[in-house]
Every structure is written in structure tokens, then in C-alpha cells.
């Protein structure tokens, strides 16, 4: 059943984020997770913010969460502006 679930059966992406943000932030070097859109400007996705480039970390980040694509962005540490 899970294999033929349609887009309409997906939960709201904000609920998906709320359900998974802690586990994503528990991955080393992940400093944030947000709701965004893909470059097509309309497909909702989860954006994972990474403090530093680390292939090992990137392998731990899923490509899909509850049917939503996950995009990894190399942001660096998020610091108070100013330090």
C-alpha cells in the first residue's frame, strides 16, 4: 500500500517537518531544517542545512521523507549576527 500511495495521501509538509526535525538535527553537522520549494518553484521539499561538507553526513540524510524530496544546502554554522 505504501508503494502506490499518491501525492494526495501525503501529510502536510509542516507536519512532516515537525515529526522529523529532531532526528535530522541529530545527524552531525546538520544545523537546520526548513520547508522550501525545489528549483521548479512549486514542488515542496525539506531543506537540510549543513555546517560543513561531509560526504559521510550526506549519506545519512535521506533523499525522501514521507514522500517529500530532501535538498541538502551547505550553509555553514548559523551564528548570531554578530558572533
Amino acid at each position: 500500500m505504501a508503494q502506490n500511495s499518491s501525492a494526495s495521501s501525503k501529510r502536510d509538509i509542516n507536519a512532516v517537518l515537525a515529526a522529523h526535525d529532531k532526528e535530522l538535527l541529530a545527524i552531525p553537522d546538520v544545523v537546520g531544517v526548513s520547508v522550501g520549494v525545489l528549483e521548479d518553484g512549486r514542488t515542496a521539499c525539506l531543506k537540510v542545512m549543513l555546517a560543513r561538507k561531509n560526504p559521510e553526513t550526506e549519506r545519512k540524510i535521506p533523499n525522501l521523507v514521507e514522500g517529500y524530496p530532501v535538498v541538502v544546502e551547505l550553509t555553514g554554522e548559523i551564528r548570531p549576527m554578530s558572533p
Binding site: N14, L25, G32, V33, S34, P80
Partner: peptide
């Protein structure tokens, strides 16, 4: 570029001081 973000931010305890705490904000 992003909504409803959960982000971790580390704060100092005074100007150029030591780490006070790391705060995880939601809904940013």
C-alpha cells in the same frame, strides 16, 4: 527561501565570551 525552519544557534555569555547555550529554534 525557507519556512518553518528548525535551527540551532550557539550564543556567547558576554562580548567575546564563552559559550552560554545552544538554542534550537522552531518555526523560523
Amino acid at each position: 527561501s525557507g519556512l518553518n525552519a528548525t535551527v540551532s544557534v550557539t550564543y556567547d555569555n558576554e562580548c567575546a565570551g564563552g559559550t552560554a547555550f545552544t538554542k534550537t529554534f522552531t518555526g523560523q
